[in-house]
Simulated scan of single mutants.
Amino acid sequence: MYRNLLLLLSFLSASIFSFGQNGTIKGVVVDDMTGETIIGVNIMYAPGKGAISDVNGEFEFNLPYGDYELTFSYVGYDQFVQAVKLNKDEIFLKVKLENTTLKEVEIVADVAKSRETPVAFSTIKPAKLDEELASQDIPMVLNSTPGVYATQQGGGDGDARINIRGFNQRNIAVMLDGIPVNDMENGWVYWSNWFGLDMVTRSIQVQRGLGASKLALPSVGGTMNIITKGIESKKGMKIKQEIGNDGFMRTSIGITTGRMKGGWGVTFAGSYKQGDGWVDQTWTRGGFLYLKVDKKLGDHLISFSAMGAPQEHGQRSYKKPITMYDTDYADKIGMDPATDYITG
């Protein structure tokens, strides 16, 4: 009996010793690619319990025997979880953390979306065009847009120029439905070619700074994208007659069919204008035609656009009448001070 009692006490003592025994989990954390140690890695073995790697990238835990999950996390690296069964005095780990690979940001749209595209932009709706544009060149309606300055310059037809954040028109991408219309040589845009486009404009978006266009354009200053009505628009027709001073007259029409049977859609705009101009030699006479045909094929949209602007107009003269310099000399050489100009 004493022998059995002694065996029982010995067994209990061994069990208590076994359950209360501690071991050590130690190791080092390194970069998977370079092999360099990483300082300050957050290492957790239980909720709210853990430590960080030291200046040598090393760590050490003294824990009771058992099963643990060590979680390693550090800014710029993927989180790593290592299961450990502690059943001996010491366990050594060499943990390799992999760099977090960020996916490239792809901007594949010409139109920025609120809270989605990281671009500062403003959108002009048709209502504002109807209220403020009148017979001006299209950029003039953008003067109330932050960061944008537009001017009619000399007052000639199509002479308008636009500046965004201080960059002139050579450094601003102007697009029509995502198609660049800047002059290929000097980057200018001749707005007399687009004077009737407002009849079928759905919106004008101005992106300040580098924009969301996927095309190689001179858009350091910004991007101006004119979006026309198409198959997604409601069926409608608009006719406008404008009469102004100095013999100005403009007649315009815009037609949108919306989506027709078979997934077709047609958008048309036409305009004719003439006038003497309020500045000397800035007369104008010309027309504008725009046609867009859309075809919806499943999830795809095929769009065909054609445009033209046959015109002739004067340019503000850089010459000065001789009488601006010397009336007596003009009389002496037989020139009419009222009409004759110095050339050369």
Rank of each mutant, 00 (worst) to 15 (best):
N4E: 08
L6Y: 10
L7P: 07
L7N: 10
S10T: 14
G20C: 12
I25T: 01
K26C: 04
V29C: 00
D32V: 14
T34W: 04
I38A: 08
I43E: 04
A46G: 07
G48A: 00
A51P: 10
I52K: 12
L63Q: 02
D67L: 00
D67S: 01
E69W: 13
F72K: 01
Y77R: 04
D78C: 13
V81G: 14
V81R: 11
V81M: 13
K85G: 14
K85V: 15
N87E: 12
D89R: 14
E90C: 09
I91M: 07
F92Y: 15
K94M: 14
V95R: 01
K96P: 08
E98K: 10
N99S: 13
T100F: 10
V105L: 08
V105R: 07
A109F: 15
A112T: 05
E116D: 15
P118G: 12
P118T: 09
P118I: 11
S122C: 07
I124R: 00
S135P: 10
Q136C: 15
Q136P: 12
M140I: 00
M140C: 02
L142D: 01
T145F: 03
Y149Q: 11
A150M: 03
T151S: 07
G155C: 08
A160F: 02
R161W: 09
I162M: 03
I164R: 00
F167N: 05
N168G: 04
Q169P: 06
R170I: 02
V174L: 11
V181A: 00
N186Y: 06
N186V: 05
N193M: 15
W194N: 10
F195D: 03
D198F: 01
T201W: 03
T201L: 04
I204D: 02
I204P: 02
I204G: 01
Q205N: 08
Q207T: 07
R208M: 03
G211P: 01
G211L: 01
A212K: 08
A212L: 12
K214H: 13
K229G: 11
G230Q: 03
K238Y: 04
E242T: 09
F248D: 09
M249R: 10
T251A: 11
I253N: 10
G254C: 05
K261T: 07
W264D: 05
F268S: 05
A269N: 03
S271H: 05
K273P: 04
K273M: 07
Q274D: 14
G275W: 03
D280A: 06
Q281E: 14
G286S: 07
L289G: 06
Y290D: 00
L291T: 10
K292T: 06
K295Q: 15
L297F: 11
L301M: 06
F304R: 08
F304M: 11
S305G: 07
A306K: 05
G308I: 01
P310R: 05
Q311I: 14
G314Y: 00
Y318Q: 08
I322W: 07
Y325D: 03
A330Y: 06
D336Q: 09
D340P: 03
